[in-house]
């Protein structure tokens, strides 16, 4: 009881490091947002840590501090259906900053979590091809969970997944309203999903062994479910399409924790 009432949120991130292996413009020494402070150490019983059974979550905000390069408008003139389907100008990939520097489309996952079997949900993850873009742009799923791929556009698409560990697939979806289900059977980060007909269309899928992940919203906020997760300190891995990858850590107590981070460049 005491543990629950004193649920303490510890933000660390002392171990933040740039871990991306390619040439992105990631600041090699990302700066943690230190505005969140540790209040008091959690009281942990000496026996096995309790698991979160409620609706608590790790929450926080990911920001980008600095001058984000301007995103170029996508030229969709190669397919008139795309132009008609996207009356507003669609901007290309890049750093999408919301209010107060919140960074959208950052994928956040906990690492070093207990090695337990998590059953894939019956409910599929939905990936929609709409306005010749993918919605969502970055998303996660559990191993063997279905991805339901929809074509809401009045044009043809091919859906082409280019994983490194899973099986590559390339399927045509020539008609509006078509849907197909696909599954990845192995855990893998940042699987590129693209449309070769419309080369600007890209999405990134994360296939995890556990459900402890989230993607930031337009304002950079996120809520990462922790149901079934014992109290403890866990690693946090962040990924952004342009900024790359970095890591930190978070203390989870009673299923709750906060984690905030600011990328700089």
């Amino acid at each position: 009881m005491l543990r629950q009432t004193l649920a303490v949120l510890v933000l660390t991130g002392l171990a933040c490091s740039d871990a991306k292996g390619n040439d992105t413009a990631v600041d090699p020494t990302p700066v943690l947002d230190n505005t969140t402070t540790v209040t008091e150490p959690a009281t942990v019983e000496p026996t096995a840590p309790a698991k979160n059974t409620g609706a608590a979550a790790v929450t926080g905000t990911i920001r980008f501090d600095g001058d984000a390069p301007e995103r170029a408008p996508i030229d969709m003139s190669a397919d008139a259906n795309c132009v008609d389907g996207s009356p507003d100008t669609v901007l290309g990939p890049g750093i999408i900053r919301g209010a107060d520097g919140g960074l959208a489309d950052v994928f956040i996952q906990l690492t070093d979590v207990p090695d337990e079997k998590h059953k894939a949900p019956e409910e599929p993850v939905v990936l929609d091809q709409r306005g010749c873009t993918y919605a969502p742009h970055v998303f996660g799923m559990i191993v063997k969970q279905d991805i339901r791929i929809l074509n809401s556009d009045a044009t043809l698409h091919n859906i082409h997944a280019v994983p490194q560990r899973n099986k590559e697939f390339n399927v045509g979806m020539p008609e509006k309203g078509m849907e197909i289900d696909k599954t990845f059977k192995k855990a893998e980060d940042a699987i590129t999903i693209k449309c070769d007909v419309h080369p600007w269309m890209k999405a990134y899928a994360f296939c995890l062994e556990h459900p402890y992940f989230a993607t930031t919203a337009a304002d950079g906020s996120f809520s990462l479910p922790t149901e079934g997760l014992p109290d403890g300190e866990y690693g946090v891995k962040l990924w952004h399409e342009v900024l790359g990858e970095t890591t930190g850590s978070v203390n989870v107590a009673g299923g709750a924790g906060t984690f905030s981070f600011a990328w700089t460049r």
Partner: peptide
């Protein structure tokens, strides 16, 4: 097929 995008 419709000669749209890279199908062309």
């Amino acid at each position: 097929p419709p000669m749209v995008g890279n199908v062309f």
